[in-house]
Design a protein around this nucleic acid. Sequence first.
DNA 1: GATTCGTGGGT
DNA 2: TACCCAAGAAT
Length: 373
Amino acid sequence: MDQAAEKYLAAFPVDRFQKQLLYWFERNMRQLPWREDRDPYKIWVSEVMLQQTQVDTVIPYYKRFMERFPTLEALAEADEEEVLKHWEGLGYYSRARNLHQAVKEVKERYGGQVPENREDISTLKGVGPYTAGAILSIAYGQREPAVDGNVLRVISRLLYIEEDIQKVKTRRLVEAIVQCLIPEGRASYFNQGLMELGALVCTPKSPHCLTCPVHEVCLAYQQGVQSQLPVKAKKKKPKTVKLVAGVLTDGEQVLIRQRPNSGLLAKLYEFPNVEWYGHEPAETISRYLFETYGLRAETVEEWPLVQHTFTHLIWEIRVYRLQLAEPLGGTLKSAQNRLSLASETRWERIGNLDRYPFPVSHQKIKKELRQRL
DNA sequence: GATTCGTGGGT
DNA sequence: TACCCAAGAAT
């Protein structure tokens, strides 16, 4: 056993804790869509959706996703864009692309059977230490730790661990501890119980210690320091990026483009936009469209400012409706010919925009377009 | 090991 | 308002 883990568990009543947690979970577990059976594929999808995302947010996405991609094969055979469309609004879109790629990998390399060991399952895109442990324990009943934010918080309080839970070393320590705590044959409920306790009782701000099923063995509660744990480094403030977007339309069709294959909001669609500094934003987007796509466009009107906050940055988007300028004789159709080299761009009928996955920031612009035309 | 990757909800 | 937080992983 891990030496550091052993030290934390030396005087801990493991057996009592296991019984109290399992007893509580069996009587208080929420009925969730992904708890209806043990299909590894379904568990997998739910775990990926739940990464950094709250249960209530995931539920409707999970239901729609399972209705459209009910089996691993169904997802493996789907087009990536349709997968992204079903992920639209959920965030962290690389999760969807990685899941899709990994599912195709399982179909080809493992005959459609999700690997049952940590080594193989961890080679799949988007399957890290937590997701691997969650699938192995929940779907296959294996004694593997599944340490997420809830478990880090619960264990750090339970055993009075003052290490920064954002450190990889701390996560590994907690994994070693949980490995020792999982009762034989009860890995699924034990791991889920730890997370459920964190979600419903041992909450970040004001934990409900008085009604906690394990408070009598909790070191933080005994010391009265539950609100000071876990220890976590402060986050940096997001930087503001000023963008200007152009909605180039004749009232029937509109210019959209697909974002690059990697990075922020990869492969999602958007209205052409560019970062701007200092000068007039309207002039900036007009010049940008000419230099990038050879389009002569002029400002028609300014639309409401779109502000969107990400984890690490803030977008402040000035939006202009544009129309093609006459000098180059531009109807949209002639412009389309000039656009043929720019493969990421596309003229699309406004009524068809819902076919494409847009990030929330550009959904706001799309909504404005709808209201005006 | 530090950053990058979304979004919505809570206080 | 300004944080913080959520069933994390990839780079």
